[in-house]
Amino acid sequence: MEKAVLQLEALSCPSCMQKIEAAVKSVNGVDKNSIKVLFNSSKVKIDFDAAVTSIEDIQQAIENVGYPVLKTKVKAS
């Protein structure tokens, strides 16, 4: 498993968090229990299996629901 932190544009409402969480959950290979959407810092923290999905796929899922990803950071756990 790899750990990733994605920096998003400022989140403006709590329902944004639910949309982002649902988008990330829809990506195969993401550990559904690891998803944390941090409203105040506009970050998403997740664990994912790099053999199943890529950080680009996760980033695309978030951008597809309308939230630009500014930066991603991945480190092997």
Rank of each mutant, 00 (worst) to 15 (best):
Val27Gly: 03
Met1Glu: 14
Ile35Asn: 10
Asn33Phe: 11
Tyr67Glu: 02
Asn28Pro: 15
Glu63Gln: 12
Lys71Arg: 15
Ile58Leu: 07
Phe48Ser: 06
Leu11Asp: 04
Ala76Asp: 12
Glu9Lys: 15
Leu8Trp: 10
Val69Leu: 02
Gln59Val: 04
Val74Arg: 06
Asp47Leu: 07
Ala51Arg: 10
Gln60Cys: 08
Leu6Gly: 00
Val37Gln: 15
Asn28Cys: 00
Val74Cys: 09
Asp49Ala: 11
Val5Pro: 03
Ala4Pro: 02
Val44Gly: 08
Val24Cys: 02
Asn33Gln: 10
Lys19Thr: 03
Ala22His: 12
Gly66Val: 07
Asn64Ala: 13
Val27Thr: 14
Leu70Met: 14
Met17Asn: 09
Lys43Gln: 14
Val44Met: 06
Asn40His: 07
Pro14His: 11
Ser26Trp: 04
Val24Leu: 05
Leu6Asp: 01
Asp47Glu: 15
Lys32Asp: 13
Gln7Val: 11
Leu6Tyr: 01
Met1Trp: 13
Ile58Cys: 01
Lys45Gly: 05
Ile46Pro: 00
Ala51Leu: 10
Glu2Lys: 08
Glu63Trp: 06
Ile62Tyr: 04
Asn40Trp: 05
Ala10Phe: 06
Lys43Tyr: 01
Lys3Glu: 11
Ser15Thr: 08
Asp31Arg: 02
Glu21Met: 04
Ala50Ile: 00
Ala22Ile: 00
Ala50Gly: 13
Ile58Gly: 05
Pro68Ile: 12
Gln60His: 03
Ala23Trp: 08
Val30Met: 12
Pro14Asp: 08
Leu8Met: 05
Ser34Gln: 10
Lys75Thr: 05
Leu38Lys: 13
Val65Met: 07
Ala10Val: 09
Val69Phe: 09
Lys73Glu: 13
Ala51Trp: 05
Leu6Thr: 03
Ser77Gly: 05
Asp57Ile: 02
Gly29Glu: 07
Ser15Lys: 03
Ser34Glu: 08
Lys75Ser: 04
Ile62Asn: 02
Gln18Trp: 09
Thr53Lys: 12
Gln18Ile: 13
Asp49Glu: 13
Val69Trp: 07
Ile35Tyr: 12
Val69Arg: 02
Glu2Ile: 07
Asn40Glu: 10
Asn33Met: 04
Gln18Arg: 09
Gln60Lys: 15
